[in-house]
Simulated assay, not measured.
Amino acid sequence: MGWEFVNWLVGEAEETDNPLEITMDSDKTVTAVFAQFLRRVHTYHQHHRRRNSYS
């Protein structure tokens, strides 16, 4: 599993710029929003059996 950045919430506004430039001219609430995703890892395993040959 992993996380990826989705957007910023600045007060009630959604902002997708990253990095985000904010003018702090009053109190503001800034929240980073992330979404979780599943990371799929594909592996391939092959098993070889030795065959004994008897003469």
Rank of each mutant, 00 (worst) to 15 (best):
L20K: 01
H42C: 11
F34V: 10
T43L: 09
E4Q: 10
E15M: 04
W8M: 02
K28Y: 03
R49D: 15
G2A: 13
F34E: 09
M1W: 02
Q46T: 14
H47E: 15
W8N: 01
D17Q: 05
R50A: 08
W3N: 10
Q36A: 14
G2V: 10
N52W: 08
M1G: 11
R40T: 12
R49I: 12
Y44F: 12
T16V: 07
H45I: 13
H48F: 14
D17N: 07
D27G: 02
G11Y: 03
A32M: 07
K28S: 07
M24L: 14
T16E: 05
K28E: 05
V10C: 02
F37E: 03
D27E: 09
K28Q: 10
F37Y: 15
V6S: 08
W8Y: 11
V41S: 05
R40Q: 12
L20Q: 05
K28T: 08
A13C: 05
R40S: 10
Y54W: 08
S53Q: 11
W3R: 12
H47D: 14
E21P: 01
L20S: 04
S55E: 13
T16C: 01
N52K: 11
R51N: 09
L38H: 03
A32K: 06
Q36G: 11
P19W: 02
N52T: 11
F5W: 07
F34P: 01
D17K: 05
L9C: 07
F5M: 06
T29L: 10
T43S: 10
F37I: 05
V41A: 05
H45Y: 02
T43M: 07
H47Y: 12
V30W: 00
L38G: 03
D25Y: 01
N52R: 12
R39T: 13
H47M: 09
V10A: 02
H45R: 14
L20A: 03
N7H: 15
R40I: 13
H47V: 15
V33N: 01
I22F: 00
M1N: 11
Y44N: 14
T16W: 01
T23E: 08
R39M: 13
D17C: 00
S53K: 12
R49P: 11
R49N: 14
R51H: 08
T31G: 01
R39H: 06
T23K: 06
T16N: 02
F5D: 00
R51Y: 04
V6L: 09
K28I: 11
V33Y: 00
V6W: 03
A32N: 01
Q46S: 13
A35S: 14
E21L: 05
T16K: 04
M24N: 06
N52P: 09
R51V: 15
P19L: 03
L20D: 03
R50F: 09
N52G: 08
Y44M: 14
W3M: 13
V30I: 15
V6F: 07
D27N: 10
A13I: 09
Q46G: 07
E21A: 06
D27A: 08
W3L: 14
H42M: 12
R51L: 15
G11M: 05
V6A: 07
A13Q: 11
A32H: 00
V33I: 14
H47R: 10
A35N: 13
A13V: 13
E14L: 07
T29S: 12
H42Q: 14
